[in-house]
Each structure stands twice: as structure tokens, then as C-alpha cells.
Design a protein around this nucleic acid. Structure first.
Lengths: 231, 231
DNA sequence: GTCTATAGGGGGATAGAC
DNA sequence: GTCTATCCCCCTATAGAC
């Protein structure tokens, strides 16, 4: 029952987005689906379908679904934290042994997240939403992996903040940093997925600030919180 | 091949926690599993197994898995927001037409979350973690449902905060409230699931404050952030 | 109200052809 | 490196007995 003999094997989805390889296509497709549906809500089959690949390719390139998911996170987190560390290096070089001003440090945390779209080709803002959620994911392995990826930057920012806030006991900084990252993650999520739902109070109908306006608002709130007097 | 004829039908898990009904058992079991594994990571079968019930019971009492999940949230959110509104009423009565001080308002937001375990019998602290994650769940229906459940309190706290911060444009408050709830959710999550992982800097090895200490730290940070000067 | 049985659809992983 | 076929599992929802 052979027909049209000699026809070359056709790609299954000839108009799928072209990536440099199947591996990249899988990562790109997985990233978008994870953003939309979360880790537990995304199946390997959905990923391969969106990537125009097949089940075997996941096993070949990543081993398991979980390894693929971790690489999706790592691919974006590595340059993000590198950017943060570079900014910290620049600030500390500029300050010449003096403590770096608090607002500058907070900006070094916040800005790379907001600007990732521009500094990392292919990154969508929605990606950061995924990272935010990852830190609260029920899967403890994912949480541990993300913490490991951020460990170097975390150590650096800890000591810089302690120098900027010399009157603050280190034990207090630990908790304030957690509030900081909560505000950052949730605020960024709100900004990226801004939905102009009608507000009961028309005066408070939210407006979406531009990038610099958003960074400024975030830095102001966080710097004030970090500087709060202690009892 | 019948054996031990006449033996009464045994419960599948005779030592399971006794609730007032199958319905309550399902809600209790679902709540714990949702906290541990998230919405997409929790199956109806896992719920019925933990509750010592059967698949039909879910359909009978709730209709679908999703309806069960929404009721798990609603059962805890209703009294939580009632508590917040009651505190707000008391503060406004006490202030007699004057604006309520900012710290008092923030405490009315924070304290019911932290104290839910005591004011709502059966509530575990972990439950709040679930609610926090629900607001970032990929399922938009869940997010919309939670927003609806919190709408009354949200309206009330908006106007109270605007009175306490008369110099702050309402448009600015909108964003600061989002930072607020991010800090609250993430901070509470850290406190409830405090894991004493070794910190690279021994000085910053975190200690878990008691309930009042935690509320105080949270209120200080948030009140300072809300009061930050505007450009 | 409670339970069993079953329908009907995906799920992850892998073996082995090409 | 890529793909198909397949194993065996778990999923939700429902029909209908008790």
C-alpha cells in the first residue's frame, strides 16, 4: 500500500518554532508549559507535542521529566544570578571599602529579575513567575535545587547587606530577607501578569507602571522594610 | 470460597482520624494532601484513601474534585477573613472617626493568619501555606475564587490604609499592598516550615522566633515598607 | 449515604528499529 | 540522534448494587 514513493520523510510539525536542536526545542516548549500550568500540571507528552519531538528524545537528552524540568530552571537562573553578582562586584569596586548604599544593593537584587527579558535572549517575563513559584513548589527537590543555584549570590548579598545595615543584628536580617524575596516574587508576578480587573474603589483601579517605575516602587518598599527600626 | 462468614464488614482504616462525617473526613484529608503536594499533585484517589472513603463519596458530597478543592479553601478562608474584619471593626470603633494607626491595621492583616491554628479548631499552620500558594496557582479559576472570598476584607482594608496614609496616592497603595501580601505569604511560609539548614555564615544561622516575635518582625517590616517616602 | 466495578483516557519510562 | 510501539501504572467520573 505504499504511496508517493521516494518522498522524503516529512517533519511532523514543519512550521514549529525552529530551535538550534531538539534539546533546545524541548527546553523552550517545557518552559512555556511550566509557566502556564506548573510542574505537576505539565506532562512530558504535552512538552514533546509542543516541541515537535517524541518521547524518546526526553529520555535521550535529559533522562527523566524531572531532569528536564530542573534544566529549564537552571538555564535561566545561571545567567540571572551571574548578572546579580556582576552588579554586586561593580558596586563594591565603586564603593572602595565603604559599605554600598542600601538602595543600590536592593536594586542589584531586583533589576536583573525585571530586566531578564532584555539581558537574556529568549527569556520571557513570564519565566520569572515560574521561578517564583518554584521556590514554593511542593516538591522539596526542586526547592533545594533552586536554593543551591542561588547559594553563591545569597552569600554575597548577605554580607553586603550586613555592611550596609551595621546596626541590624544578623539574625534579624535573615527574616527581613525572606520578607524581601516574598515581596519581590509576588510583586513581580503581579506586574508581569497585570490583569486590569475592575477594582471596587475606582480611585484604586491599578495602573501598570513602566519598568523603571516598577523597579523604583519595589526598591523603595524593600529598602524601607529592611531599614525598619528594631524594638 | 467464603471464609469467616458472618464477620461484620470492617472499616478499611479503623484507626483513621474520626471526623463527624465522611464529608468532613474528605475535607480534612484533602487539606493535608493539598498542603503537601499542591493541587495538581493531589489525586482524588489519594484523598479518599487518606479519608478512608471511596470514590463515589466525592461525587456524592462535592460533585467533582475541583469543587472539593474549592471547599477546602473556603472552609478556612471564611473564618479567617471574618476574624480580620472583626478586628478592623474593633479598631475603627476604638479610633472614633480618627484614622487607625498603621501598625494596628497591619497587625489586623497579619495576626489572624498566624493565629489561625488557635482560633480555628483543626487548622494547622501549614494550611496557610496552601492558601498562599493558591493565589499563585496556575489554575485561574482557583485564583479567582480566592479573590472573591477575600473581596470584602480587601475593600475594607483598602480604605482603612488610605486613611492611615493620607499622603499616599491610592495608585501607589495598590502596588504596596501587593508587596505586602508577598512578604506576608512567603514570610509565613518560611516561619511555618522552618528548616534549620546550616547557613554559610554562622552569624546568620536562622533562629525561629516565637509567634509574637514573628508577628512583630513582620509588622515592622511591612509598616515601614508601606510608609516609605514617595519620589 | 456508602460502596464496588468499570469505562475510557493519560501518565512516565523504556526497548529496539532506523 | 530520532522515532515508534508498548508496558504497566494511575487518573477522573459514573453507573448501579446495597
Amino acid at each position: 500500500m505504499s504511496v508517493t514513493l521516494g518522498q522524503p520523510p516529512a517533519a511532523y510539525a514543519p512550521d514549529r518554532p525552529r530551535s538550534s536542536s531538539t534539546r533546545e526545542a524541548l527546553l523552550d516548549a517545557a518552559e512555556q508549559l511550566l509557566v502556564e500550568h506548573g510542574v505537576a500540571g505539565t506532562s512530558t507528552r504535552a512538552i514533546i507535542k509542543a516541541a515537535g519531538a517524541n518521547l524518546g528524545a526526553v529520555n535521550y537528552h535529559f533522562g527523566t521529566k524531572e531532569d528536564l524540568v530542573l534544566e529549564v530552571f537552571a538555564r535561566r537562573l545561571r545567567p540571572l544570578n551571574q548578572d546579580r553578582i556582576s552588579r554586586l562586584n561593580a558596586l563594591e569596586a565603586e564603593a572602595q571599602e565603604q559599605p554600598v548604599p542600601l538602595e543600590k544593593l536592593v536594586e542589584a537584587i531586583v533589576r536583573p529579575s525585571v530586566e531578564a527579558r532584555e539581558t537574556q535572549p529568549g527569556t520571557t517575563m513570564a519565566l520569572f513567575r515560574l521561578i517564583c513559584r518554584g521556590f514554593q513548589d511542593p516538591n522539596p527537590q526542586l526547592k533545594a535545587f533552586l536554593n543551591k543555584e542561588c547559594a553563591e549570590f545569597a552569600t554575597r548579598i548577605d554580607s553586603a547587606l550586613l555592611r550596609a545595615l551595621p546596626w541590624l543584628p544578623p539574625q534579624e536580617l535573615v527574616w527581613r530577607e525572606r520578607f524581601l524575596f516574598g515581596a519581590l516574587n509576588h510583586g513581580l508576578d503581579s506586574w508581569v501578569h497585570f490583569d486590569n480587573l475592575p477594582h471596587p474603589n475606582p480611585e484604586m483601579q491599578p495602573m501598570r507602571p513602566d519598568r523603571e517605575g516598577f523597579i523604583h516602587r519595589m526598591v523603595s518598599f524593600i529598602a524601607a522594610g529592611l531599614s525598619a527600626p528594631i524594638a
